[in-house]
Amino acid sequence: MRWVARLLIGGYLLVATLPLFWMALTSFKAKQDAISLHPRFVPTLSAPAEADPERVTFEATTEAYAKLRAVQTGASASYFEHLGNSVVIGLLSTLLSVALGTLAAYGFSRFEIAGSKDWLFFILSTRFLPALAVVVPVLIMYRELGLLGTHLGLVLLYTAFNLSLAVWLMKGFIDEIPRAFEEAALVDGYSRLQAFFRVILPQARTGMAVTAVFCLISAWNEYGFAMTLNSSGALTVPAYFAGLQGNLEGMPWPQVAAGALLFVAPIVLFTVLVRRHLLRGMTFGTIKQ
């Protein structure tokens, strides 16, 4: 039994990580090696002696990483500028979503709000439409407001989209924190707002970490709006890569691989950092003590 399980898990792991592995390999290739019809997957440190077209070796090079700094044909800025856009937009929208979502969720959790169930449903309903269905109206609105191609535009948009998720997730977490926590503080002489910051926020950290991960991933990887609402100003990495398609020189695959690898790294790092919270948070309060 045990070795069958191991085999299955190992097989799945292989399938799941192969694309990542291949991407990493590609980022160290020259363009010819990357687009060769025969797969080349054994890196060597020196150039191959004979140019056998069916060889499996290629010469490892960091050229692709170096070239990330250059402005590509068909683009107006380097990869790193676009990465910067992604970081600014992703972090700001995550921060806003979590902050607003936590406050709204606290309200829904603790106060009697007329029609609160309807409000919550309405908030969730903003997710019913496929996001791309509202691309054109948003485009027209943003053109009128002068938000096209700005960081602010995308930050607001991602926040609006993620806020429903944040409110619902955070409401679940805050519901789990006993009311007595802040009521004790109220009786002890604190105001409602002070009780919220001194007592509820420290308890809600797990929930906020989980919510932040979801919001960040969603904003970080978003492509449709980033592509449509931008020409160049606040182009994020996914849109930037897509924009490289069809330019005169063809797709610079090794650079795309190198850039994508760097693009994945911060998310992985962030998730590992809050992993402890995530594992506890993912049970959504199913274990009550």
Partner: peptide, 16 residues
Amino acid sequence: PAERDVALVFQNFSLY
């Protein structure tokens, strides 16, 4: 509540 100067010990809540 803060102005009443009463102390309340809850049944379930114990500590932060």
